[in-house]
């Protein structure tokens, strides 16, 4: 068994009295897609925000490539080549697509000024791969549709050579064609050896794209399964009933 790329062990975090994530352990290997499933409020987003540096766990540890790491803010996560597509997209609405894509990592000219033209050219290139119909490069992203905004958030996560990619419902607002393009993108990134956490409510997508799936319910981990060993219905019952497949009901 190889060392996992990411190993989150026994993670706990609570907000006030709510145990949003309660002793959860998940892991992810290079070139693997692990699906995170669960009902609304199960704790999926909270769990991955601990990995992306948005939150700090109350207890538990994170290992990357076997080494214990401290991720205390989003900068630490970026330094570990962890990129995240947030469920809320986390875009600055008043800035245009390229300013958002390069936010915090702007390209600069030799005078130290932000090179907007170069950034726009790069943005045009990557958007050409993700969503060729995308044309709104000059407008603030508040003027974009939900799917277009999602494309910008996806572009930002994949542009910077991530090693670990976190996708929190990346296809929620996408049309069928764009969804297909993201599915192809995931296959390609996977073949490049990138590890991906994919949060989705679409069981079909999960069965299609993921190698393993971890199911959460009320902040606890129900279990992790190999998608080849289970059916759609098994996954569904894990989500709804919170039981491992095959476990006999009392």
């Amino acid at each position: 068994m190889t060392t996992p790329l990411v190993d989150m062990r026994d993670i706990c975090i609570s907000f006030g009295g709510v145990h949003a994530v309660d002793h959860v352990s998940v892991d992810l290997h290079a070139g693997e897609v692990v699906g995170l499933l669960g009902h609304n409020g199960a704790g999926k987003s909270t769990l991955i925000k601990i990995l992306s540096g948005a939150y700090q766990a109350d207890s538990g540890e994170i290992r990357i490539g076997g080494d214990k790491v401290d991720i205390t803010n989003p900068r630490d996560a970026r330094a570990h080549k962890i990129e995240t597509i947030y469920q809320t997209l986390a875009l600055a609405d008043n800035l245009d697509a390229s300013s958002n894509l390069f936010l915090g990592r702007e390209l600069i000219t030799r005078f130290g000024l932000v090179d907007d033209d170069a950034m726009e050219a790069e943005t045009r290139k990557i958007m050409g791969r993700l969503n060729p119909n995308f044309q709104k490069f000059a407008e603030p992203v508040s003027a974009l549709s939900g799917g277009q905004r999602q494309s910008v958030a996806i572009a930002r996560a994949v542009y910077f050579d991530a090693r670990i990619l976190i996708m929190d419902e990346p296809m929620a607002a996408l049309g069928p064609h764009e969804t297909q393009m993201v599915a192809e993108l995931i296959e390609q990134l996977k073949s490049e050896g990138i590890g991906i956490f994919l949060i989705s409510h679409d069981i079909h997508d999960v069965m299609e794209l993921c190698d393993r799936a971890s199911v959460m319910k009320n902040g606890k981990l129900v279990g992790t399964v190999d998608v080849n060993d289970v059916t759609d219905d098994d996954l569904l019952s894990m989500i709804i009933l919170g039981k491992q497949p095959g476990a006999k009901s009392a």
């Binding site: 996560a77 986390a90 875009l91 600055a92 609405d93 008043n94 800035l95 300013s99 936010l103 932000v114």
Partner: peptide
């Protein structure tokens, strides 16, 4: 309009959480 400092000022005004998540202090 042309410095990182200024870019982060406008980004913060547009969405403070997103700016923080982009690794900006």
């Amino acid at each position: 309009s042309k410095s990182r400092f200024g870019r982060y000022i406008f980004a913060t005004g547009g969405n403070p959480e997103a700016t923080e998540l982009a690794g900006i202090n």
